[in-house]
């Protein structure tokens, strides 16, 4: 019974937030306008095309994509933190974000069409993780540490490559586009993004939900997990694949949105404790809520858009400290 209530809360809060967010934006739409559009769609009524466009093609895809990206980044972060038994690890740990960032920058320089950014960033995100995995296999002892170290190295190499591309980019055309992409934004959100990038995000997230119990065992350490009869190597590979798919899918449509994959799992841990069976679903929900709220604020603050990376840190920091004070990190 308690578990059912737990899941109801996890689904209701993001759904409510998403519902409220439809009313927020620069364009003044009344509650009545929004309901007219929503009911008009269902009942096939005639609605004002401007209102329809704003609600259906601007706000709704942003909210859906924001929720998906937030959920994917935080669930991957939580899985990595548990598996590597390291609280400083985030979703971009194994170089996914830097790899994806490099792929995007490369595509922006090589091609005229923005379309190529998506496959390139997704592909290079995967390549970065693959490199980490190869580095991790160099040693037989304590693979977790080698993987984390490999992640740091591959990440910094790709960051350096991004800087190099920024250096050679044409300051008039390509550089602004690269910087804009790297700062992270949901402003390009549309249904194609949701469909295409949604596949890896949802597949990865479902994969992590499926092994949430095994994550508890992995978190005990390799030797303990092995003695409990778990195929550590296979599960670790599976977790890495799922988290990578989810993160790369998120990064390729939204750019690099920092902070969520690191801090939301900690927020989740303060609220639900260390048990991954609860933590993983909680992170999906909190991550979705967090990015929906941040994007609402980004849309409302100015007549232009503020990069999400700035806001996630400014808002997330104080909230994190508040949670820490309130819960005294008891459940941690």
């Amino acid at each position: 019974m308690r578990l059912t209530r737990f899941y109801i809360i996890l689904v209701t809060i993001p759904a409510l937030l998403a519902g409220i967010s439809i009313f927020f934006g620069r364009y003044p739409l009344t509650i009545e306008n929004v309901f007219n559009v929503l009911f008009g769609l269902v009942l096939n009524h005639n609605v004002d095309p401007t209102h329809l466009g704003i609600v259906v093609h601007i706000r709704l895809p942003r909210i859906i994509l924001g929720a998906m990206v937030g959920a994917s980044l935080s669930v991957s972060g939580a899985a990595f933190q548990g598996m590597f038994r390291n609280p400083l690890v985030s979703s971009g740990m194994l170089g996914v974000s830097s790899g994806a960032g490099f792929g995007a920058a490369l595509a922006l320089i090589l091609f005229d069409h923005f379309f190529w950014v998506y496959p390139f960033s997704f592909g290079f995100g995967l390549i970065a993780v693959l490199l980490c995995f190869i580095i991790g296999r160099f040693t037989s002892a304590n693979q977790s540490i080698t993987l984390v170290l490999g992640g740091v190295i591959v990440g910094s190499v790709f960051s350096a490559l991004i800087s190099f591309l920024k250096y050679v980019a044409d300051p008039m055309d390509e550089l602004p586009a690269i910087v804009f992409w790297l700062m992270g934004s949901l402003s390009r959100a549309d249904y194609t993004h949701i469909l295409v990038a949604g596949i890896p995000m949802i597949a990865g997230t479902i994969g992590l939900i499926a092994v949430k119990w095994k994550l508890n065992v992995l978190a005990m350490g390799d030797r303990e997990a092995q003695s409990l009869g778990l195929n550590v190597k296979a599960y670790r590979l599976f977790v890495i694949i799922c988290a990578t798919l989810a993160t790369a899918g998120a990064v390729c449509v939204s750019g690099v949105i920092g902070w969520i994959g690191l801090v939301v799992p900690h927020m989740g841990r303060m609220l639900t404790g260390n048990d991954n069976r609860r933590l993983i679903p909680a992170c999906i929900s909190i991550g979705a809520c967090f990015l929906i709220i941040v994007d609402d604020i980004s849309r409302l603050l100015t007549s232009s858009e503020m990069p999400l990376g700035i806001l996630t840190s400014i808002l997330g920091g104080p909230f994190f400290i508040y949670l820490l004070k309130k819960t005294k990190g008891r459940q941690w």
Binding site: I58, S187, T302, S304
Partner: peptide, 20 residues
């Protein structure tokens, strides 16, 4: 006529603002 947010000397508008 609007106050736009500058980013690196460049000014960006929100899509809803443009619709407005």
């Amino acid at each position: 006529e609007s106050r736009l947010q500058a980013r690196g000397g460049k000014y960006f508008a929100d899509i809803e603002q443009i619709i407005l």
